[in-house]
Design a protein around this nucleic acid. Structure first.
Lengths: 220, 220
DNA sequence: CGTTGTCCATACGCCGCCGTATTGACAGGG
DNA sequence: CCCTGTCAATACGGCGGCGTATGGACAACG
């Protein structure tokens, strides 16, 4: 069974290109022939790797779901203190313009109906993660849910504002950005847990030894 | 110049149908022939009222912009107290599922490039309205902007959550909804202005005599 | 009763995309 | 060598949507 016979494309390459197209042109913009042109090949290649366009979309969605749940949450979970985790999630909004474009594109997509399932699962896991964070701060289930919904709203709304009003949003390197994040954390943490305004610990669970491997920047 | 010769369609009818299609199938879903079928006519009718598809989209967008700025803000401005206005804006999220679907569809649209201009103007005016509300509470420009950004994020994020996780969002008639709104208002009002947790006044500007004409419900 | 202007139906050519069928290049393994 | 399996180019039919061209139908008005 021979393998790479030169510059052979893989199904993963197609799925990644599909994700890129989703971010730039929306789900409807994932068309086989234009994608093939961008990859420097023709449809003949595509229909060897996939049975049809829907199969490509499912592959892309599976990739997206993996990245937006396991990987991101694993990164955030390096922070052990719930406050630091929450702050980390809020700042993660500014990590990738591309990721936010893909999310909003998928969220507003309707045509391949199975897209909604993926969006729902990813959102569900993100929200549950926040609920757990607030529960770890000692809040009851109802209160934790309310705080989590509020924080997740800010998270999603920030994505939207960055897209609709890019001029109103401070760049990640702008000092106003750090100011705004500090401001947000005051509203997004219950008063009992508001011991520090920075990513230091407070004493509810554990310490925060993570050296912040993935930084905030890379935006714009 | 004869006018209505029976059940004649107007350009407004087409624009309204286009808006409906945007909400249900996205901007790409605004196709002339399917729309004509839904209206019980053929393309011949359309190309009498409009020169092409882009003209229809601009008409629909103009309609949308008028409704989402002047009309909504005029309604909210019936509240004279800034706190009541802010609360009103937050609860208005739940007035119309249709309006939120149209907004997210437009926000994620890319293909007719002029769509972005409309979205930007509407977002700009909404945010500015919030900035004015917080300025009326006595905050300085920088603080008012931070509070407004936070509130607008919650506003937009709530739209998104209602769409992505409909089961996690309390219905407008659910008592949990009123609970959540009260909870939000605590975080969304600066401490100095947090005199009441309800829609009563506090004494910064004037009273709140509006009899709440458009209620919250109609959701789901 | 013809004329004029409004509103719509029908028919056509075009283009972009989907999916299939067929053929071909090219690498390894026997 | 040839044979098999991998990856891709080409060619084709079909469909749905856009825009045009033309020809009514039908009211109002003289």
């Amino acid at each position: 069974m021979p393998k790479s016979q030169k510059n052979a494309l893989s199904a993963q390459d197609w799925a990644e290109a599909a994700l890129e197209a989703i971010g730039r042109r929306g789900v409807e913009g994932v068309a086989v022939e234009p994608l093939a042109r961008e990859l420097g090949v023709t449809k003949g290649s595509f229909y060897w790797h996939f049975t049809n366009r829907d199969a490509l979309l499912t592959a892309a969605l599976a990739r997206w779901e993996a990245r937006e749940t396991d990987e991101v949450l694993a990164r955030v979970q390096q922070e052990t203190d719930p406050r630091a985790r929450i702050k980390r999630l809020v700042t993660e909004v500014n990590t990738s313009r591309r990721a936010s474009r893909i999310y909003t594109a998928l969220s507003s997509a309707t045509k391949p109906s199975f897209v909604r399932e993926y969006v729902e699962r990813v959102s569900q896991r993100r929200l549950q993660f926040l609920v757990d964070c607030y529960a770890a701060l000692g809040l009851g289930p109802e209160r934790a849910r309310q705080w989590a919904l509020q924080t997740y709203s800010v998270f999603l709304g920030s994505l939207q504002i960055r897209r609709d009003l890019p001029d109103e949003w401070p760049a990640a390197d702008d000092p106003a950005f750090a100011d705004y994040v500090r401001f947000l954390m005051v509203s997004l943490l219950p008063p009992e847990a508001r011991t520090e305004d920075n990513e230091h610990n407070g004493g509810t669970t554990a310490d925060t030894p993570a050296p912040d491997p993935q930084a905030v920047a890379q935006s714009r």
